[in-house]
């Protein structure tokens, strides 16, 4: 019964995704299209952590570090090269290499889960401070200035490979973002269903038992961490290109915590939950930020979205601890079981 539910879910996501890919740019206004594109990009970032944490059992609190590295690698390369194909690849490869190096020391050093979370977050914060202190003109790579706290503005949009002049418009950026989201989602589903993925899940369930059966858990976890780093980096590329800007804020603690909230709201251990959690929270944040009537209703000039996010997290931890998707799945299966 669970498999039937899974199949229906996959088919629904595929149909909805393809429908949105084709239809949405024709029916929504430009502002919404731009908003939805960034939801898709952030959902890719959420998927990277959903995979690493939910299936690999590695709480990478500083997943934003790979997102930021991807964005900065892309920005520096595209300014120097003028064409986006190689910079996109670099935006995924640089975070993967960094994840391999960092992950090797953490995972092969058998650092426990809590310390691993602290280390990844610390690394992200080190990048935050490092980039923030590069405001001077001497901090440049080729023609690209790092820009310090001002970030790197004026990034060109992604172009058709090999043709720097054929740049994507808003609809093209939306289609690329949603297409990439679908590709990453279904790619990760296939990976989790593969022999590698099942072994990874077994290691998450019981690392000692997996090792006593002959699985080198550290190798599996490192590979998962590197894949997660690459996906987060790729999301960073799309983010930098979407906003024509990348700044040190992506390495900050607020952004790192936000990714955790997306996943906890959607449901740890599911991929669809990560996407749903991202969209729900981002929509809520945007809506509250814009909605003057809600602020007026509670007697404030402006609503602090950080406070709202914190309240949402507390409510979910208390009332829906397993997140939206696992709760819905349990309810649906329970109802089917009762009616059978």
């Amino acid at each position: 019964m669970k498999r039937a539910a899974d199949r229906i879910g996959i088919a629904a996501i595929a149909i909805l995704g393809l429908g949105a890919l084709i239809g949405v740019p024709h029916v929504v206004e430009l502002f919404t299209l731009v908003d939805v594109a960034v939801y898709c990009i952030l959902a890719i970032l959420a998927l990277s952590l959903a995979f690493v944490w939910g299936f690999g059992g590695i709480l990478s609190f500083g997943q934003s570090a790979f997102f930021g590295l991807g964005g900065y690698a892309y920005a520096l390369a595209v300014i120097n090269m003028g064409e986006s194909t190689v910079p996109i690849l670099l935006g995924a490869i640089v975070p993967m290499l960094f994840a391999a190096l960092l992950g090797y020391f953490m995972i092969y050093g058998r650092i426990s889960d809590v310390y691993l979370a602290v280390i990844t977050l610390t690394v992200s914060l080190i990048f935050y401070h490092l980039i923030n202190s590069t405001a001077g003109p001497e901090y440049a790579i080729g023609r690209a200035r790092l820009g310090g706290h001002n970030g790197i503005p004026g990034l060109p949009p992604i172009n058709i490979p090999g043709n720097a002049a054929a740049q994507l418009d808003y609809a093209g950026t939306f289609r690329l973002s949603l297409g990439a989201l679908l590709l990453v989602y279904f790619g990760l589903r296939a990976l989790i269903a593969s022999r590698f993925g099942r072994a990874l899940v077994a290691i998450r369930e019981n690392e000692l038992r997996a090792e006593l059966l002959g699985y080198d858990s550290r190798r599996y976890k490192l590979i998962a961490f590197v894949i997660g780093g690459g996906i987060a980096g790729f999301a960073g590329v799309l983010f930098a290109s979407w906003g024509s800007f990348i700044g040190p804020g992506v390495f900050g603690i607020a952004f790192a915590a936000q990714i955790i909230i997306w996943i906890l709201v959607g449901g740890l251990g599911t991929l669809a939950g990560a996407v749903l959690g991202t969209v729900l929270i981002q929509y809520l944040t945007t809506w509250l930020g814009q909605s003057k009537s809600v602020a007026a209703l509670i007697g404030l000039a402006k609503i602090d979205t950080s406070l709202v996010l914190g309240a949402v997290l507390i409510l979910f931890v208390l009332l829906v601890p397993s997140g939206v998707i696992p709760t819905l799945r349990k309810l649906w299966l329970g109802r089917r079981g009762a009616s059978a």
């Binding site: 077994a202 369930e205 019981n206 038992r209 997996a210 006593l212």
Partner: peptide
């Protein structure tokens, strides 16, 4: 001694 298993599988 204490069964070491994959409880979620």
């Amino acid at each position: 001694q204490v069964p070491s298993l994959f409880d979620g599988l």
